[in-house]
Nucleic acid binder design. Sequence first.
RNA 1: GCCGUUUUAGCUCAGCAGGUAGAGCGCAUCCAUGGUAAGGAUGAGGUCACCGGUUCAAAUCCGGUAAACGGCUCCA
Length: 660
Amino acid sequence: MAEISLTFPDNSQRQFEAGSTTLDVAKSIASSLAKKAVAGQLNGTLVDIEQPLTQDGNFQILTSDDAEGLKVLRNTATFVLGAALKKIHADIHFGEHQSSDDGFYLDTDRAAGQVTVTELPEIKKVMAKIISANQPIERRVADKADLLNEFKDDPYQESLLNAQDAVQVAVYQLGNYTSFGDRALLKSLAPLKHYELLSVAGAYWQGKSSNPMLQRIYGTAFYKAPELEADLKRRAEIKERDHRTIGRDLDLFFVDPEVGAGLPYWMPNGATIRRVVERYIIDKEVANGYQHVYTPVLANLNLYKTSGHWAHYREDMFPPMDMGDGEFLELRPMNCPSHIQIYNHHNRSYRELPIRIAELGMMHRYEKSGALSGLQRVREMTLNDGHTFLAPEQIQDEFKSVLKMMMEVYDDFNITDYTFRLSYRDPANTEKYFDDDEMWNNAQAMLKQAMDDLGLDYYEAEGEAAFYGPKLDVQTKTAMGGEETMSTIQLDFMLPEKFQLTYTGADGQEHRPVMMHRGIVGTMERFVAYLMEMYKGAFPTWLAPVQVEVIPVNLDLHTDYVKDIQKQMAAKGLRVKVDLRNEKMGYKIREAQTQKVPYTLVVGDQELADQSVSVRRYGEKDAADEPLQEFIQSVQADVNNYSRTTETSANSSIEAKLDK
RNA sequence: GCCGUUUUAGCUCAGCAGGUAGAGCGCAUCCAUGGUAAGGAUGAGGUCACCGGUUCAAAUCCGGUAAACGGCUCCA
């Protein structure tokens, strides 16, 4: 009898009879392991627990405690969901499905009427029936040709089958529901007890917007009830962190349909946060050699024809305004052409380089209506934009210095949760970009080299570049779990060419500069939204719209003192609100807490007599008396220190690399 | 833009076998003058998103438009 050799995670090796199953292997190790085992993993591929093993290789037994073991449960849930849908709608077709850390989904299509959310409870009932019947799911290996015949009326399954290289395909079957593809399912449906169907949403077949749209059913499943409960609770709590919820509760911004979708209004509270960020970043940039400018949001369309925006970015631009005299004005979608005009306004010498032009530049992009979302995705936005014009040999140093400034800013805002992404053009779709293979390859290689030299971790993504050049993007997560670009550094050889930019070199000849586009805090809209979510609305003192709220114990006796405190603090540039409404103290304190004001002061006879204040910090239950002057100084220190509690820099290791 | 859902007072929502609207919070006024998370009373506030249709009668049924939400595609 032939034998196979399995290497376990601890590197030990054992021989088994060919055709042994994961369950056999588990039993040979420990009966407790056999009980917990849900599947195996051979050379990275999931195998069913009773699937015969015929190959040597690295082998791992997956249990209900493993992340991969959870996937097996979710694969099984997806399968049962499919079986249930097939029972309810015999004519339903299935697209792709997936299990992940966040749950599972199954794509469906039904010509007679798509599945909707209202059907989910019924579907769940049918799933429960299938699970309690607990018929074994039959696994077999079938000829691709036979399967093609079986699925000849289902274009999606047919297409998925044709994409398979193998002649033989693994098939799972339960009743008249058949599903193929390599994956592991549970042997018994019994452990599938704690699951939920969450939502239904449209999804393009194979992710292409030119393809038909299927209905994607999302769900999740766990081995243990408390895990499911915790996950559902987590999903409910996402809403509390969502910047749209916080924006309304704290009166930060709104979007008014009467005005237009994607055109947010900043209320005084939100405007205050934005103003603090704007002042901060302008000061920072000026200190780092940037020259801040103001340029118009409107420009002659020709500017964007020259830049290539009209050719490559038109879909995202508002339609030009026909002025009636042959002139067309365009709302700018990017600031780069404007800054190029600034560069071009004078003759430039190599001695001036690098020239750094910066602006909080307002731009307009006609985003697709379905993409709009609060402040995260808008049609009018203000970018913390900067363009450096430099000589080619200055690229490396400038890249490093931008990155260094970025890390310093992240430190001040206490931002630590992000990843670097190198964004390249899509090689299969080059017509979307400026056409110059050599420049693209060069620029991409230079960016990668710079990151490697610095020893920074990053991942690479094709198809994410700007149309004029590759980018280093800093990716962050929204409360909803979406990934978004916050900061970006872009290398551009194209626009200097298009605009015929030059500088006079030491040799007296004209040379072409390189452009570096960069945004540090990104757009004010997205950045402030990010801060809202990161802090759950409880902004640190230096950013908080209201830093201190003062409440008198008795309106008749203490109003003067409250006003005096406000006056003194306002004189120091602090943002103080007094609450002189005819309400009880407890009521006002509650409101100050729900509005997440960093410091709530209560003053009565005692405080008035001592010229002190009773200080209660946000989120704390207790209050403590403190001399007024001492308190004012401590708040000032808090603000000046960007409300950092520790001196150590979260990004220090990266900064150290940059200093080398 | 696409698929699905939703749209009722400033906010959160109820009403919907078709018979022209309700609650809580908030707001205003009055009473209560209160020491660390909601004191009481009274009152104002809505052409039920908008435009059409069906009907004796539409917030409720049907169609269209817009916006929001969940996703997909796209993106700072």
